[in-house]
Design a protein around this nucleic acid. Sequence first.
DNA 1: GGACATCCTGACCATTTGGTCAAGCAAGAC
DNA 2: GTCTTGCTTGACCAAATGGTCAGGATGTCC
Lengths: 226, 226
Amino acid sequence: MTDVTETETLQPVRQGGESNGATRERNEREILEAAERIFAQFGYRGASVQAIAEEAGLPKSNVLYYMGNKRGLYVRLLERMMARWNALLDDISVEDDPADVLEAFIRSKMQLSRQHPEGSRLFAAEILGGAPFLQGYLRGELRDWVKTRSQIFEQWAERGLMDPVDPVWLIFLIWSATQHYADFEAQVLGITGKDEISDADVERITQFLTQVILKGCGVKPAEGRA
Amino acid sequence: MTDVTETETLQPVRQGGESNGATRERNEREILEAAERIFAQFGYRGASVQAIAEEAGLPKSNVLYYMGNKRGLYVRLLERMMARWNALLDDISVEDDPADVLEAFIRSKMQLSRQHPEGSRLFAAEILGGAPFLQGYLRGELRDWVKTRSQIFEQWAERGLMDPVDPVWLIFLIWSATQHYADFEAQVLGITGKDEISDADVERITQFLTQVILKGCGVKPAEGRA
DNA sequence: GGACATCCTGACCATTTGGTCAAGCAAGAC
DNA sequence: GTCTTGCTTGACCAAATGGTCAGGATGTCC
C-alpha cells in the first residue's frame, strides 16, 4: 500500500469514456432525481428499481451499476435530504430578535419544502413507516438541534419576549405546518381546485403562518412594534 | 329476478359454520386491523398480502377468501377511515362561538389521530403517493366541507369575532398540526426521547395548539373574556 | 343419516422483484 | 495499431408477488 506506481483512483489519469467523469456525474444525477420521485411516491418497499430505471430513462442494470443496490440508493437520498435540512439550520443566539428568527425559520422551512417537494415526501414516507433508516439521526443530531433551540426559546420567554409556551411543541407546530404543503400537496390541490401551488401562494401562506404563529406565541413583530 | 324462492343472501337462513356470521365478523375485523397497520407502514405498493396475513395470524388464502383482493381491501380501509372522519364533522353555525368551535375542532381532530393512528397514517400515505384512490373524495365531499366551513369563518371575521385570516389556510394549519402527532409519531418519539405519547401529553398538546391558534387568529376565548 | 352452507388452505401459476454477470462498446494513452 | 479504463446492457437467477382453485373441514337444519 506504500509504493504504488500504478494508476490510483486518487489521481484519475482519465482515459476512455467521456472526458473526465462527466458521464458518471450526469447519470448519477439523473438517477438520483428519478429515484427521489419514485421513492417519495411509493415508499421504500413500494418502489422498484425497474420503475426508477424507467423514470431515469436507463436500463435497470445501469442503475445498479452506478448505485450498487436499492438500499444504498435510498440511504444516499436520505443523506442528501438531511444535508439540505442541516444547511438551513444555522446558529441563532438569545440576543437575536425572536420575531426575526421565527419568521426566518418559517420562511426557510417553507422554501425547503417548496424547492425539494420530492425529498420532503421521501422524508415523510420514511418517518411514516417508522423511520427504520433514520432512528439514529432522530435520536441524535436532530434531537440535539431541537434541545438547543428549545433553550433559546425558553430564555426568550423568561425575558418576556414571548409567551412561555412549550418550545418543543412549537417547533413541531412549525414543522408540521410548513411540511404540509409538500407532503399533502395532492390534498391541498384537490381541495383548492388549483393545479399547482404558485409562488404567490407560497408567499401568502408564509405570511399567514408567520402572522398566526408569532401572534399566537405573543412574539412582538420586529422592531418592538406592538 | 322476480320469483326467487331459493335462499337469498338477504334472508340469511344460516346453517353450517359458526352460529350466524360470527366467524366472518371476527376474522374480517382481525384482517382489517392487521391490514391497516401494514398498509400504513409500507404504503399500498409496499404492503404484501402475505405480510397482512401473517400480521393477522391467518394463511394468505384466507385473507383473500374474505377480502377478494388487495385493492378491495385497501379501498375498504380508506372508506372506513373516511367514515370516521366524516363522523366528527358535525354542522356548525355562524351563531356558534368561534372559540368553542375551533377548540372542539382541534380537540376532536387530535383524538381521531390518537384513536386511529394507523388509519391516520394510511390516509397520509395515500395522499403522499398522490392520492390515486382518493382524488374523487378530495375534489368532492371534502372540498365542499372546507367551503362551508370557510364561509362561516369569513362571517366571523366580518363580525369582528376573529382576524380576517384566510380560512382555508387556517383549516390546513389545524389539520397539519393535529395530524402530525400520528403521522410523524416516530419523529416525535425520537426527538423527545419518550417511548410513547401519553394521554397527558395529548392533553397538553391540545391545549397548546388551542391557545396558540386561537390567540394567533385573534379569537377571544369563550365567554368573551379578554 | 344426508343436504347445504360457510369456512379453510395447500398447491399451483404467471409475473415481478432485487441482484449478478459476462460480454461488448467507446475513446484517450501509448 | 494495442492497452486500459469506464460505460452499457441483455440474459439470467432465486425469491417473492397477487391471485386462483379444487378439495376438504365443520357444523346446522331437515
